[in-house]
């Protein structure tokens, strides 16, 4: 990591844990929860958000001295919407099934608060390279939570990971199922996404006492 100075390294690494957008800053939960029933969808969503945020941060940072303060929200929305349309079209072209599955949630990246939040809080006041790193870090932290939630929900709900039957076959009764293990169909339903995130927050705050609210 000799390429990056200490400050630059912190820009990427902080949001992954102690300054995580979802569990600490409470941003971008909207689109995060509904698509985490399967790991594959979570990974695609994470990659899409990383792409949109990193590129968007750079664009806004380059334009930061030209954008009039009063209409900056509209400018930001246009930049995000254009990037999201690109992501949507790319997904439709190369992963049509998955894009059908994610349905409106790709479009909802536009109103994902992480993106607006980082534009406002960081890209408007920093140079493009730092903004790029900040984008990677924050979207990465968001993606990390998505992937953790997707991992547990798919593993416990379907007994699969990326569609591979890692716990054995529930119908043929092989692997764990031979011992009487059952899939917990409840994990697939939407309420469990909330509860899994609640538990992640719990674990994180046990480890880092500074984050505890009164």
């Amino acid at each position: 990591m000799a390429l990056l100075s200490r400050k630059e390294r912190n820009l990427v690494l902080d949001p992954l844990t102690d300054d995580n957008p979802i569990t600490v800053q409470v941003l971008g939960i909207c689109s995060a929860l509904a698509i985490t029933a399967e790991l594959k969808a979570s990974v695609v969503m994470a990659v899409s958000v990383i792409a949109v945020l990193a590129v968007g941060n750079v664009v806004i940072s380059l334009l930061r001295n030209v954008i009039p303060n009063k209409i900056r929200i509209i400018v930001q929305l246009v930049v995000i919407a254009a990037l999201v349309i690109l992501v949507d079209l790319i997904l439709k072209a190369f992963a049509f099934e998955l894009s059908k599955q994610l349905s409106v949630f790709i479009g909802l990246i536009i109103t994902n608060c992480i993106i607006m939040g980082r534009f406002e809080a960081f890209a408007l006041g920093n140079n493009p390279w730092h903004s790029f790193l900040d984008g990677i870090g924050n979207a990465g932290g968001y993606g990390l939570i998505l992937i953790i939630v997707g991992f547990f929900r798919e593993l416990l709900g379907f007994g699969t990971l990326f569609g591979y039957k890692v716990l054995g076959d529930p119908i043929e009764k092989t692997g764990l199922y031979a011992l009487g293990y059952e899939n917990n169909g409840f994990m697939v339903l939407s309420p469990m996404a909330l509860i899994v995130i609640g538990i992640i927050i719990w674990v994180q705050r046990i480890k880092n006492k500074e984050l505890i609210e009164d």
């Binding site: 569990t23 409470v26 339903l189 939407s190 309420p191 469990m192 996404a193 909330l194 509860i195 995130i197 609640g198 538990i199 927050i201 719990w202 705050r205 046990i206 006492k209 505890i212 609210e213 009164d214």
Partner: peptide, 23 residues
């Protein structure tokens, strides 16, 4: 409420329980 759950954590879990109710 257990200290690490206070605020955000317990809100998530309550929302989850309410969602189960709404199901």
């Amino acid at each position: 409420v257990p200290a690490p759950l206070r605020g955000l954590g317990i809100t998530f879990i309550i929302t989850g329980l309410m969602a189960i109710g709404f199901m």
